[in-house]
Structure formats: structure tokens, C-alpha cells
Amino acid sequence: MSGADWLSYSLQDFVMFGPQVFLRLFVRINQDLWPWQVLAVVAAIGIPVLLFRQKRFERRLAVGLMAVAWAVSGYGFLVGYFGPINWPAVWFGWAFVAQGVLLAAAMFSGGVREAALPSGRFVALWLIVVCGLPWLAVAESGQWQALALFGIAPGTTAAAGALIVAVITGPWRWLYLPLLVLWSLFSAAMFWVLQAWWLLVAPMATLFLVGAGSWLSPRTAQSPD
């Protein structure tokens, strides 16, 4: 293909589905999973609580839950629901699963901070993400059944996962970051083409939270240990 041909392509040419079909994915997965969403909500609330506990096991459980959230939203939503109408979603789905495995590996290899997280700011941001972002899909679709819950919907999961940067240390953090950035760029481009303006907030929040997570991390936060 010549250079001129490539120039004739726009972002639009790569989005092969319409906004209605995309927003229906949230409704469908919620209908199919009901009532297991309850577990996702418990995990979303439980993770910051566990990160504040003194017992190492509990903090590891929090990171383990985040790893499961990556894998479930990747395999469930991206591979299972989104993949059939959009092939790149399948690649991202497996990348989400790999991100979960990476996080679990970091946890067992000393790549996750062992001391309790001291920051109330972390909890505040976390709660804003897991309680606020799910409503973006509702605002966009006008259907409350489209709630994009943490651990199920990739956007909310990635945004919360960005904050977890705060507890990942050393080279593990550099391995953890690329997917957050790639997913944010990919989903932002997609929502832009779909003109789904509410949904654009999620990738922008994710990029912001990568920065916030780094800022709240052990090097900058005052550790009691």
C-alpha cells in the first residue's frame, strides 16, 4: 500500500461496531452474571480495607483480588463479550489476564510493598474510581443496567488497577505500566470515534491515576516501617 493510501485511512475506519452495540455489552454481561456482581462489589470495597491491615496475608489478599479483577474483566468482558465484535479487544483481553498474572507474580516475588499503605488519599481516590466510574456507562446509555463495575468492566478495573501502582515496587512497576497506558490510548481513541464522551473520562482518569499511584507509592509516601 502506498503512503497516499495510508493517509486516506482515519481512526473511524478501524472501529467496526456502533455505540449502541458497545453499550449493550455492559447490560448483557450484567444480566448474564447476576447475582455474582455482589462479589465484585465486595472485592472493590474490600481491597482498600485489606491494604490498610497490618497482617501481611491480608495485604497480599488485596493484591491477589486485584490480580483476579484484571483476569476476570479481561477474559470475561474483553475476550468473551467484546472480542466477537472487535478483534483487538481479544488481544487486550489476554493482556489483561497477563497483567493479573504479572501482579500475582510480583506479589510472590517481593515486587509488592509489604507494609500497610498509610495513605487516606489512596482510599479516597479508590472509592471515587470504584463508585464513580461505573456510572459513566449508565450516563452514556441511559440504562442503569449498564453499570460498569470494578472487576467486570475493563475501564473501571484498569482505572483502579492504575492506583495499585502505589504498592508495586522496583522493575515490576515498569512491567505493570505499559498495559495501563496502551489500554487508555486504545479506549480513548475508540470512545472518541464512537462519540461516547462520558466514557472518555475512564481512560483519562486511568492516565491521571497512574501518576497519582506513583505519587502515593513508598518512595514518596511516608512509611511507618
Binding site: F17, G18, L25, Y81
Partner: peptide, 13 residues
């Protein structure tokens, strides 16, 4: 049928 008929397994659509 580009875009318009790509509705996956959504029975309603």
C-alpha cells in the same frame, strides 16, 4: 452491513 450488522451474540439486537 459494515458496522450496522456487527452486533455479536446480542439476541435483542
Amino acid at each position: 452491513t459494515w458496522i450496522t450488522f456487527n452486533v455479536g451474540g446480542d439476541e435483542q439486537l
